[in-house]
Protein backbone atom coordinates (compact mmCIF):
# COMPACT_ATOMS: atom_id res chain seq x y z
CA UNK A 1 0.00 0.00 0.00
CA UNK A 2 2.75 2.42 0.96
CA UNK A 3 4.41 2.21 -2.45
CA UNK A 4 1.10 2.96 -4.17
CA UNK A 5 0.49 5.94 -1.92
CA UNK A 6 4.00 7.21 -2.57
CA UNK A 7 3.55 6.79 -6.29
CA UNK A 8 0.27 8.68 -6.23
CA UNK A 9 1.78 11.49 -4.13
CA UNK A 10 4.75 11.71 -6.44
CA UNK A 11 2.42 12.20 -9.39
CA UNK A 12 0.47 14.85 -7.55
CA UNK A 13 3.59 16.82 -6.73
CA UNK A 14 5.32 16.38 -10.07
CA UNK A 15 2.27 17.38 -12.08
CA UNK A 16 1.89 20.41 -9.79
CA UNK A 17 -1.69 19.44 -9.05
CA UNK A 18 -0.90 20.23 -5.44
CA UNK A 19 1.75 22.48 -3.97
CA UNK A 20 2.39 20.37 -0.90
CA UNK A 21 1.30 17.22 0.87
CA UNK A 22 0.85 16.89 4.61
CA UNK A 23 1.83 13.53 5.96
CA UNK A 24 3.94 11.79 8.54
CA UNK A 25 7.64 11.34 7.93
CA UNK A 26 10.04 8.90 9.45
CA UNK A 27 13.61 9.81 10.09
CA UNK A 28 15.96 7.74 12.22
CA UNK A 29 13.04 6.05 13.90
CA UNK A 30 11.34 9.34 14.72
CA UNK A 31 7.94 10.19 13.32
CA UNK A 32 6.69 13.67 12.85
CA UNK A 33 4.21 15.58 10.73
CA UNK A 34 5.86 16.81 7.59
CA UNK A 35 5.05 19.08 4.69
CA UNK A 36 6.23 17.34 1.54
CA UNK A 37 6.92 19.88 -1.18
CA UNK A 38 9.37 17.91 -3.38
CA UNK A 39 8.74 14.44 -4.68
CA UNK A 40 12.27 13.45 -3.61
CA UNK A 41 11.21 13.86 0.02
CA UNK A 42 8.53 11.23 -0.35
CA UNK A 43 10.89 8.38 0.56
CA UNK A 44 10.34 9.43 4.15
CA UNK A 45 6.56 9.20 4.00
CA UNK A 46 5.33 6.88 6.70
CA UNK A 47 1.92 5.27 7.09
CA UNK A 48 2.55 2.05 9.03
CA UNK A 49 1.61 3.26 12.45
CA UNK A 50 -1.06 5.63 13.60
CA UNK A 51 0.00 9.19 14.20
CA UNK A 52 -2.44 11.81 15.49
CA UNK A 53 -1.99 14.12 12.55
CA UNK A 54 -4.94 16.38 13.23
CA UNK A 55 -4.31 16.94 16.92
CA UNK A 56 -4.14 20.55 17.98
CA UNK A 57 -0.64 21.28 19.10
CA UNK A 58 -1.08 22.93 22.47
CA UNK A 59 1.83 25.39 22.37
CA UNK A 60 0.78 26.45 18.88
CA UNK A 61 -2.92 26.23 19.75
CA UNK A 62 -3.59 25.10 16.24
CA UNK A 63 -3.52 21.93 14.24
CA UNK A 64 -1.09 21.51 11.41
CA UNK A 65 -3.66 21.80 8.65
CA UNK A 66 -5.25 25.00 9.90
CA UNK A 67 -1.79 26.44 10.53
CA UNK A 68 -0.69 25.89 6.96
CA UNK A 69 -4.02 27.04 5.56
CA UNK A 70 -3.77 30.23 7.58
CA UNK A 71 -0.11 30.91 6.76
CA UNK A 72 -0.44 30.10 3.08
CA UNK A 73 -3.93 30.91 1.93
CA UNK A 74 -4.62 29.55 -1.53
CA UNK A 75 -1.95 26.86 -1.31
CA UNK A 76 -3.15 23.66 -2.92
CA UNK A 77 -2.75 20.95 -0.34
CA UNK A 78 -3.23 17.25 -0.01
CA UNK A 79 -3.22 15.28 3.21
CA UNK A 80 -2.53 11.59 3.68
CA UNK A 81 -5.26 10.58 6.07
CA UNK A 82 -6.64 7.61 7.94
CA UNK A 83 -10.33 7.27 8.75
CA UNK A 84 -10.02 9.14 12.01
CA UNK A 85 -7.99 11.92 10.37
CA UNK A 86 -10.73 12.38 7.80
CA UNK A 87 -13.44 12.43 10.43
CA UNK A 88 -11.45 14.95 12.47
CA UNK A 89 -11.10 17.16 9.39
CA UNK A 90 -14.85 17.03 8.79
CA UNK A 91 -15.67 17.92 12.39
CA UNK A 92 -13.16 20.78 12.30
CA UNK A 93 -14.65 22.00 9.03
CA UNK A 94 -18.06 22.27 10.69
CA UNK A 95 -16.50 24.40 13.38
CA UNK A 96 -14.66 26.68 11.00
CA UNK A 97 -11.18 25.49 11.94
CA UNK A 98 -10.04 24.12 8.59
CA UNK A 99 -11.27 24.46 5.03
CA UNK A 100 -12.00 21.81 2.44
CA UNK A 101 -11.24 24.12 -0.49
CA UNK A 102 -7.94 23.39 -2.16
CA UNK A 103 -7.59 20.28 -0.09
CA UNK A 104 -7.39 16.77 -1.34
CA UNK A 105 -7.77 14.01 1.20
CA UNK A 106 -5.75 10.95 0.24
CA UNK A 107 -7.52 8.36 2.34
CA UNK A 108 -6.26 4.92 3.22
CA UNK A 109 -7.79 2.15 5.26
CA UNK A 110 -6.45 0.70 8.49
CA UNK A 111 -6.27 -3.02 9.08
CA UNK A 112 -8.24 -4.90 11.67
CA UNK A 113 -5.30 -4.95 14.07
CA UNK A 114 -5.09 -1.19 14.12
CA UNK A 115 -8.86 -0.96 14.57
CA UNK A 116 -8.60 -3.19 17.61
CA UNK A 117 -5.82 -1.11 19.13
CA UNK A 118 -7.94 2.03 18.86
CA UNK A 119 -11.33 0.31 19.38
CA UNK A 120 -12.30 2.14 16.23
CA UNK A 121 -15.76 1.52 14.75
CA UNK A 122 -14.92 2.88 11.27
CA UNK A 123 -11.27 2.19 10.48
CA UNK A 124 -11.39 3.77 7.03
CA UNK A 125 -12.22 7.13 5.46
CA UNK A 126 -15.89 7.24 4.51
CA UNK A 127 -15.70 9.75 1.68
CA UNK A 128 -12.15 9.63 0.38
CA UNK A 129 -11.00 6.04 0.57
CA UNK A 130 -8.35 5.59 -2.08
CA UNK A 131 -5.98 2.91 -0.86
CA UNK A 132 -6.48 -0.35 0.97
CA UNK A 133 -9.46 -2.53 1.80
CA UNK A 134 -12.10 -1.66 4.35
CA UNK A 135 -11.58 -3.75 7.48
CA UNK A 136 -14.30 -4.44 9.97
CA UNK A 137 -14.47 -1.97 12.84
CA UNK A 138 -14.83 -2.59 16.55
CA UNK A 139 -18.32 -1.48 17.44
CA UNK A 140 -18.27 -1.45 21.21
CA UNK A 141 -15.85 -0.49 23.92
CA UNK A 142 -14.38 -3.55 25.55
CA UNK A 143 -16.05 -2.66 28.84
CA UNK A 144 -19.35 -1.51 27.32
CA UNK A 145 -21.31 -4.71 27.88
CA UNK A 146 -20.30 -4.80 31.51
CA UNK A 147 -20.86 -1.08 32.01
CA UNK A 148 -24.34 -1.04 30.48
CA UNK A 149 -25.50 -3.61 33.00
CA UNK A 150 -24.43 -1.56 36.01
CA UNK A 151 -26.94 0.19 38.23
CA UNK A 152 -26.68 3.90 38.87
CA UNK A 153 -24.94 3.31 42.14
CA UNK A 154 -22.48 0.89 40.62
CA UNK A 155 -21.73 3.34 37.84
CA UNK A 156 -21.12 6.08 40.33
CA UNK A 157 -18.78 3.85 42.29
CA UNK A 158 -17.08 2.72 39.12
CA UNK A 159 -16.31 6.28 38.04
CA UNK A 160 -15.24 7.41 41.46
CA UNK A 161 -12.78 4.58 41.52
CA UNK A 162 -11.58 5.21 37.99
CA UNK A 163 -11.22 8.95 38.36
CA UNK A 164 -9.54 8.75 41.73
CA UNK A 165 -6.61 7.59 39.59
CA UNK A 166 -6.67 10.71 37.45
CA UNK A 167 -3.49 12.76 37.86
CA UNK A 168 -4.94 15.76 35.97
CA UNK A 169 -2.30 15.66 33.30
CA UNK A 170 -4.70 16.97 30.64
CA UNK A 171 -3.45 14.22 28.37
CA UNK A 172 -6.96 13.26 27.32
CA UNK A 173 -7.66 16.78 26.21
CA UNK A 174 -4.30 17.32 24.55
CA UNK A 175 -4.56 14.19 22.48
CA UNK A 176 -8.06 14.76 21.20
CA UNK A 177 -8.14 15.83 17.54
CA UNK A 178 -11.53 17.54 17.79
CA UNK A 179 -10.54 19.59 20.83
CA UNK A 180 -9.43 22.99 19.57
CA UNK A 181 -10.55 25.87 21.82
CA UNK A 182 -7.79 28.40 22.38
CA UNK A 183 -8.96 28.96 25.93
CA UNK A 184 -9.92 25.68 27.48
CA UNK A 185 -12.72 25.58 30.01
CA UNK A 186 -10.81 22.92 31.88
CA UNK A 187 -8.23 25.59 32.59
CA UNK A 188 -10.69 28.41 33.31
CA UNK A 189 -9.58 30.38 36.31
CA UNK A 190 -12.85 30.18 38.11
CA UNK A 191 -12.34 26.43 38.24
CA UNK A 192 -8.61 26.13 38.41
CA UNK A 193 -5.92 28.49 39.53
CA UNK A 194 -2.50 28.11 37.96
CA UNK A 195 -0.38 25.92 40.17
CA UNK A 196 -3.35 24.25 41.79
CA UNK A 197 -4.97 20.93 41.04
CA UNK A 198 -8.07 21.26 38.87
CA UNK A 199 -11.47 20.70 40.42
CA UNK A 200 -12.36 17.22 41.46
CA UNK A 201 -14.38 14.64 39.62
CA UNK A 202 -16.95 14.95 38.16
CA UNK A 203 -16.83 18.55 36.94
CA UNK A 204 -13.43 18.30 35.30
CA UNK A 205 -14.22 15.14 33.39
CA UNK A 206 -17.76 16.19 32.70
CA UNK A 207 -16.52 19.25 30.83
CA UNK A 208 -14.09 17.25 28.81
CA UNK A 209 -16.71 14.69 27.82
CA UNK A 210 -19.65 16.99 27.42
CA UNK A 211 -17.77 19.18 25.01
CA UNK A 212 -17.41 16.18 22.76
CA UNK A 213 -20.97 15.01 23.15
CA UNK A 214 -21.83 15.25 19.48
CA UNK A 215 -18.30 15.62 18.26
CA UNK A 216 -16.30 12.59 19.36
CA UNK A 217 -15.09 10.71 16.30
CA UNK A 218 -14.12 7.64 18.33
CA UNK A 219 -10.49 7.68 17.38
CA UNK A 220 -9.40 6.37 20.76
CA UNK A 221 -6.58 8.87 21.23
CA UNK A 222 -7.76 9.97 24.67
CA UNK A 223 -7.64 6.47 26.05
CA UNK A 224 -4.31 5.73 24.41
CA UNK A 225 -2.96 8.93 25.94
CA UNK A 226 -4.28 8.44 29.46
CA UNK A 227 -1.38 7.29 31.62
CA UNK A 228 -3.78 5.99 34.25
CA UNK A 229 -5.76 3.71 31.94
CA UNK A 230 -9.11 5.34 32.54
CA UNK A 231 -11.75 4.07 30.10
CA UNK A 232 -12.78 7.59 29.13
CA UNK A 233 -14.76 6.66 26.07
CA UNK A 234 -17.25 4.68 28.11
CA UNK A 235 -18.59 8.08 29.10
CA UNK A 236 -18.96 9.30 25.52
CA UNK A 237 -20.54 6.23 24.06
CA UNK A 238 -24.03 6.66 25.55
CA UNK A 239 -24.02 10.25 24.25
CA UNK A 240 -23.05 9.14 20.78
CA UNK A 241 -25.69 6.45 20.82
CA UNK A 242 -28.24 9.05 21.82
CA UNK A 243 -27.36 11.58 19.12
CA UNK A 244 -27.54 8.73 16.61
CA UNK A 245 -30.97 7.68 17.83
CA UNK A 246 -32.48 11.13 18.22
CA UNK A 247 -30.95 13.02 15.34
CA UNK A 248 -29.46 10.29 13.18
CA UNK A 249 -26.14 12.01 13.59
CA UNK A 250 -22.73 10.40 13.65
CA UNK A 251 -19.84 12.83 14.05
CA UNK A 252 -17.30 13.00 11.27
CA UNK A 253 -19.30 11.23 8.60
CA UNK A 254 -20.41 14.16 6.50
CA UNK A 255 -19.01 17.70 6.51
CA UNK A 256 -22.38 19.04 5.38
CA UNK A 257 -24.38 17.55 8.23
CA UNK A 258 -24.83 20.04 11.04
CA UNK A 259 -24.11 19.16 14.63
CA UNK A 260 -27.44 18.65 16.43
CA UNK A 261 -26.32 20.91 19.26
CA UNK A 262 -25.84 23.83 16.87
CA UNK A 263 -29.02 23.62 14.90
CA UNK A 264 -32.72 23.41 15.53
CA UNK A 265 -33.71 23.06 11.91
CA UNK A 266 -35.52 19.84 12.57
CA UNK A 267 -37.85 21.39 15.14
CA UNK A 268 -38.41 24.39 12.94
CA UNK A 269 -39.41 22.13 10.06
CA UNK A 270 -41.78 20.14 12.25
CA UNK A 271 -43.40 23.26 13.54
CA UNK A 272 -43.70 24.87 10.17
CA UNK A 273 -45.67 21.83 9.13
CA UNK A 274 -47.89 22.27 12.20
CA UNK A 275 -48.39 25.83 11.06
CA UNK A 276 -47.31 27.15 14.42
CA UNK A 277 -45.43 30.00 12.87
Amino acid sequence: MISEIKKYCRELLDSKKVDAIIGVSEEEGQWMPFLFTESSQLDKLFVDKKYPLMTTSKPMKENILSYIQRKHPGMKLAIVARGCDERAIFELVKRGQVKLENLEIIGYACDRRQAETCTCPTPHPTKNLKFGEKAEGVKEHKLAAEFDKMSLEEKSRFWHKQFSKCIKCYGCRNACPVCFCKTCLMEAHFYTQPGELPVEYPTFHFVQRYHHAAQCIECGECELACPMDIPLRLMSQPLLRQTKELYDYVPGMDPEQECPLFTIKQERAEEASDELF
Partner: peptide, 11 residues
Protein backbone atom coordinates in the same frame (compact mmCIF):
# COMPACT_ATOMS: atom_id res chain seq x y z
CA UNK B 1 -27.70 15.07 26.48
CA UNK B 2 -27.18 16.20 30.06
CA UNK B 3 -29.57 13.55 31.31
CA UNK B 4 -27.73 10.80 29.47
CA UNK B 5 -24.46 12.19 30.73
CA UNK B 6 -25.66 12.25 34.33
CA UNK B 7 -26.93 8.74 34.01
CA UNK B 8 -23.72 7.39 32.60
CA UNK B 9 -21.87 9.03 35.47
CA UNK B 10 -24.16 7.26 37.88
CA UNK B 11 -26.04 10.36 39.01
Amino acid sequence: ITETMLESLGI
